[in-house]
Design a protein around this nucleic acid. Structure first.
Lengths: 342, 342
DNA sequence: TCGGCGTGCCAATACCTATTATCACGTCAG
DNA sequence: CTGACGTGATAATAGGTATTGGCACGCCGA
């Protein structure tokens, strides 16, 4: 097998250069307080380059007692939101010389993943779409953690301003004249969804608009969930004129259900998503949505984590909140005249 | 910082159990030829469990000269195809106790990623969507490699039968009566696309149908590419009655261009994709496509890689070819009567 | 009584790098 | 001439685990 082939070690470089292994180490680590004769340094560097010496990062990690690797745990890639987050995260990590260990919920649960990561002396963990509050308190104690899209007093976090996103959704729909509006979202779920809902409700209430219970539909945060939920809404005696969905996947499901039921967007119904994933522009009409910078979330999460790793944790964990952005496309429009007026 | 906290070592377990560290190691590794008194074994196991000893996998890796980790290199997550592949791969890897190091093209190129992986003593690499033939021959020499979706004589591979996929596409469209058919796909690209095109052309030719140059449109393997390409086709004096796209993303772009141009699928045009990604069911009409089991590809790639790692490479690298599956949805239909007939 | 053998454990070492303390050597000032 | 000091390298060691060879002990048969 191709494993176990003797690798080129610092000792080998040392042997060929006629110096000791620590000298090679000294030179390669460019330690400023290392005093090495210019001639020796050059010889060692030359030989190292010649025979293609590359330090074994595992051995380095053993000495440093850390691995220069981070873990990213996500619920699943079904949701392109996390794919984008991951992409942004990987980019920054790679640039900084860190490896990204990928963990998806499924084969292993969060705790098992965390243990596996710990065994590999991981430097830190990013939790995306996983409610940290549902985990036993102790399992995250000795880890550097950054949460994505869930504020926390214990851990650093980055996320979109979900409350504001909900309020922007309300403002947008109210501005179009909608008064009978609905919400589709998961029941007990990660905080982001709860805040989106709360913001939406608050925004409506501030304008004196209430959502009766029949207009709040619980559904899984997926396309399938959106389909089912929208069917329920369309079956109502009095339909809403606008629907805000907890995320774009749900909205796309709702979109599809509308298409199947012959409901014309945005004439018959306005539909608003949240996240602004790429797929929103695939459907016709394109989905209006409250946009969050997904790649940026991933990128910032990594930067935050690395600063925590390299400089130690702050006394109060930093929380970066990125502003959502209303993206008006084709699925939202003015409310039908005469409907919803008192 | 939270790093550097003294970890619980085998030596610590040994101290408490009144034995030596190697004895702990012997017991924990369950080496069958290890002769250890039952009473000692139980005491050690008990204490290890009590103080929560977990072996340092980095140290294990240093001894074993391998890391029990694999790398997966993909072009990008923009394409949900790779997200699915990755998901299947991670699942199997996690079950088998291997870590997955994620590498996306972008910040680093393939060679840099490979070097970074090598430095971490990676056990093997999965290349998805990256033409191995474009890499310098030597860089993969000392690695266990499995390619996804590109046959090779040097490396193990798993993939859909792209040639057959193309032929199935041809058969499907021909069977619906189409004679003036077009193809949209990238020019110089990874082998899978070339084979799909070749199979398609062969399937057509076998039925006596030729594609004039104007009906073969080159475009990036993306939604944007599909849009541009379909516009070109729709601008033709004599439009095709059916279009086969190199992958679903392209097809979805084409789908959208049709919608924008008022071309009604499948009445005015039949549209066929390839891969069967999830988004195909989002659009209306849903996209017909030639399906490939993406998660299965990832899962099998890992299994192949692990067998290669643990049992050594075969003399002739195994190539698993999975059969494509025609998935008829709403975007393909009978050719308009009277068109394309001789 | 002694050789032989089986049992149960351990010392030594390998894996590879980075760090710390130290040493040898030469120079220069006093 | 000697002591102090600066320079350039090395020896020793840490980091945590797995493996190999071997040691000590007790028992049995000769």
């Amino acid at each position: 097998m191709r494993i176990g082939k003797r690798q080129i070690t610092a000792a080998e470089v040392a042997r060929r250069a006629g110096v000791s292994q620590p000298t090679v180490s000294l030179i390669l680590t460019r330690n400023p307080k290392a005093r090495v004769a210019r001639e020796t340094r050059e010889r060692v560097l030359r030989i190292a380059a010649e025979i293609g010496y590359r330090p074994n990062r595992l051995a380095q990690a053993l000495v440093a007692r850390r691995s220069f690797a981070i873990g990213v745990i996500v619920p699943g890639f079904d949701n392109p939101f996390y794919a984008q987050v991951l992409s942004g995260a990987e980019k920054v990590a790679a640039e900084e010389g860190y490896a990204v260990l990928l963990c998806e919920m499924g084969a292993l649960d969060v705790l098992q993943h965390l243990n596996a990561l710990r065994d590999r002396q991981i430097d830190g963990v990013i939790l995306a779409g996983i409610a940290a509050s549902t985990l036993p308190a102790a399992v995250l104690d000795d880890l550097n953690v950054v949460l994505i899209n869930q504020p926390s007093t214990r851990f650093a976090s980055v996320g979109g301003d979900s409350l504001k996103a909900g309020m922007m959704a309300a403002a947008h729909l109210l501005g179009l004249g909608h008064r009978r509006v609905a919400f589709i979202g998961p029941a007990n779920s990660i905080p982001a969804f709860r805040f989106r809902e709360r913001g939406f409700v608050q925004g409506l209430r501030a304008a004196g608009v209430l959502m009766p219970g029949e207009l709040v539909v619980r559904a899984g945060a997926s396309v399938a969930g959106g389909i089912v939920a929208m069917r329920r809404l369309l079956a109502l005696r009095e339909r809403p004129t606008a629907v805000f969905c907890a995320n774009d996947l749900v909205a796309l499901g709702a979109h599809k259900a509308c298409g199947a039921a012959g409901v014309l967007l945005p004439r018959d119904l306005s539909l608003l998503g949240c996240d602004d994933i790429e797929m929103t522009t695939l459907v016709m009409p394109e989905l209006s949505t409250i946009g969050l910078p997904q790649r940026e979330l991933g990128a910032r999460a990594v930067r935050l984590l690395l600063s925590q790793i390299e400089e130690g944790p702050r006394e109060t964990p930093p929380a970066q909140v990125l502003p959502p952005k209303l993206v008006v496309r084709g699925s939202t429009g003015p409310a039908p005249a005469g409907i919803g007026a008192p």
